[in-house]
């Protein structure tokens, strides 16, 4: 290679040069600011593309797509809509146990691995405070924004319980954080984010099955729900529609 032209710089940025040529470019970059600037531009474009599309990896997969890949033998149990303002624990106990079937469990663990890894990596900052009020942050915001109780995910770090429109018109959702320390709470959608009027330690259900069966709601959360519940709890269709509307 003689002159370092744009094709060579592109191959350098894309990691397609052999070690000798890459070392030559390295040496040239140290001396030639114009070349170095060009490499920075190429890298900035690549970074922008990745920043735009990599988050797709963390998005929940629509059910219509994952359903295509269900083994033919896996029974699909319809979600039962809860009547009245009961706790999320009641929903969880009735939730289908299809994940425990051997074939389905394997498939599910594979499909959820990517999402699970992301949860663990981004764990930590679940909550932020602003003006003395408590808001969801990070992975909790993501779960409240995206997860549907009608499409329960036994491996997700956050389990969504009930969703409903409160007396003041806000959409509220109860949730349980399964990763230790397990927490349960209520989140209500405001222009500033998901406000958390109540958040407390989760109570493990019988047998301590936090991971699989989620937990019962602490009395404080149950009371907060009862205080706000104006009408019906959302069914699967209403929950989906509310998500499409941005929980407004």
């Amino acid at each position: 290679m003689t002159a370092i032209d744009d094709d060579i710089l592109q191959a350098y940025v894309d990691g397609a040069l052999d070690a000798v040529d890459a070392a030559r470019v390295d040496a040239a970059l140290a001396q030639d600011e114009a070349l170095a600037r060009r490499v920075r531009q190429l890298r900035a474009l690549d970074a922008r593309l990745r920043a735009a599309f990599d988050p797709v990896l963390d998005e929940p997969v629509p059910e219509r797509l994952s359903a295509l890949l269900q083994p033919a033998t896996a029974p699909v149990v319809p979600f039962t809509v809860l009547e009245g303002g009961r706790g999320a624990g009641a929903v969880r106990r009735r939730a289908p146990r299809r994940w425990l079937l051997p074939g389905a469990a394997l498939a599910a663990s594979v499909t959820l691995l990517a999402a699970g890894l992301w949860w663990w990596q981004s764990g930590g900052g679940w909550v932020r405070t602003q003006g003395g009020r408590q808001f969801a942050a990070g992975a909790l915001t993501h779960a409240l924004d995206n997860e549907l109780a009608s499409e329960p995910d036994a491996h997700a770090a956050v389990a969504i319980g009930l969703s409903f429109r409160g007396k003041d018109g806000q959409v509220c959702r109860s949730f349980t954080v399964r990763t230790p320390p397990a927490r349960a709470g209520l989140a209500c959608h405001t222009p500033a984010g998901w406000e958390l009027p109540v958040l407390g330690p989760a109570v493990p259900s019988e047998g301590g099955e936090l991971r699989q069966a989620a937990s019962d709601l602490p009395p404080a959360v149950q009371a907060a729900i009862d205080a706000r519940l104006g009408g019906e709890v959302f069914d699967a269709q209403q929950e989906r529609a509310a998500r499409a509307a941005g929980w407004r």
């Binding site: 599309f53 990599d54 990896l57 998005e59 890949l69 498939a107 594979v110 499909t111 990517a114 999402a115």
Partner: peptide, 21 residues
């Protein structure tokens, strides 16, 4: 067909990213 189906489950996030791009 089982191998492909299980492979597709693991591949789904990347396939969605490619499709979005």
């Amino acid at each position: 067909s089982d191998a492909v189906r299980e492979g597709l489950i693991a591949l789904l996030p990347r396939l969605r990213r490619l499709a979005r791009a």
